[in-house]
Nucleic acid binder design. Structure first.
Lengths: 169, 169
DNA sequence: TAAGATTGAGTAATCAATCTTT
DNA sequence: AAAGATTGATTACTCAATCTTA
């Protein structure tokens, strides 16, 4: 009984569709960009996020708990992800001196170099992927809107882009 | 050796960040909306996408191959997903009469009812999640931009929203 | 011989239970 | 006790190999 609806011209009016578009755009980007990251790093796209957050943190390290919150992985998922990074000699664990229950994940020298290389490659891949899709103004607008959404549904992830490295006055 | 890198103040200007925002927004939405879907349907959020596509297709069925392309699952991943839907009595397989290599995944009566119920619940959850974030105009603009991106990086997914039910002249 | 779908083996996530330090 | 992190068992995916029909 759906009306003929030959095509809701802009295919909108439906928030289910809006959410669908976000999920599909994310899946498409993951699919498009994963090969570049994995070829460069030898690890999965998920691992790249961890490495990137470490490389942007002071001392190139973060508490397991914080990394877990920022990435959205469960503590157990993060434990295993860091296991793999250690096996690949991209990161190591260190005990937290002030609270010996805690552990830091710390980037190795090699891990940091690889991450920077992967970033350059990633940037090129993204440039190629986004070429011709948006005007500069549209890109800024898209980022502005997405940031509001992200801050609403996943605020823990914000730390990295909100305060890159500076916390001081 | 990393430079002080005080970084771009509005956290933008960087396409890596733009991609990150999309991935994080999608992860946040998945996390926020999954409980509602799973509570209603007893199946995962991924399964909901399959059910939704079937419910919007003529005859409530789709070829395995098409469903695989539209969802972005591999053929093998889709086989197992449909196995689970069959186990839950939400869908069944049918042989394709015109090409007996092929199989249709077909919604059961119950599967269609459950999907419609899940949609209503989903809509409410989405309304609650998005409340107060965007103006109506911003929502339209966001969808417009995302659609362009989705069409570029994952065009196979478009079928559902671009041509809901009509394919005939 | 290729297309469509499935199966076997392996990987990365989850939840629930556990161990250690506070 | 409670917080931080890990381990054991399970789930949902992937790739490569296979079976069936065109």
């Amino acid at each position: 009984m759906t009306p003929p609806s030959v095509e809701t011209p802009p295919a909108l009016g439906d928030r289910i569709t809006l959410v669908g578009l976000i999920l599909e755009a994310a899946a498409g980007l993951r699919r498009t960009l994963a090969p570049g990251l994995e070829g460069q790093l030898g690890v999965t796209g998920q691992a790249f996020e961890i490495l990137l957050r470490l490389s942007r943190s002071p001392g190139h390290h973060l508490r397991m708990t914080d990394l877990s919150a920022q990435t959205g992985l469960t503590p157990s998922g993060l434990t295993r992800a860091v296991d793999r990074l250690e096996a690949a000699h991209l990161a190591v664990r260190e005990v937290c001196p002030s609270d010996r229950r805690g552990a830091f994940a710390t980037l190795t020298e090699r891990g940091n170099e690889q991450t920077l290389l992967a970033c350059e490659r990633h940037r090129l891949d993204i440039d190629a992927t986004l070429a011709g899709i948006f005007t500069a103004a549209e890109e800024v607008e898209l980022a502005r809107l997405l940031q509001r959404l992200r801050d609403a549904v996943f605020p823990e992830a914000a730390l990295i882009s909100a305060e890159p490295e500076v916390k001081r006055a």
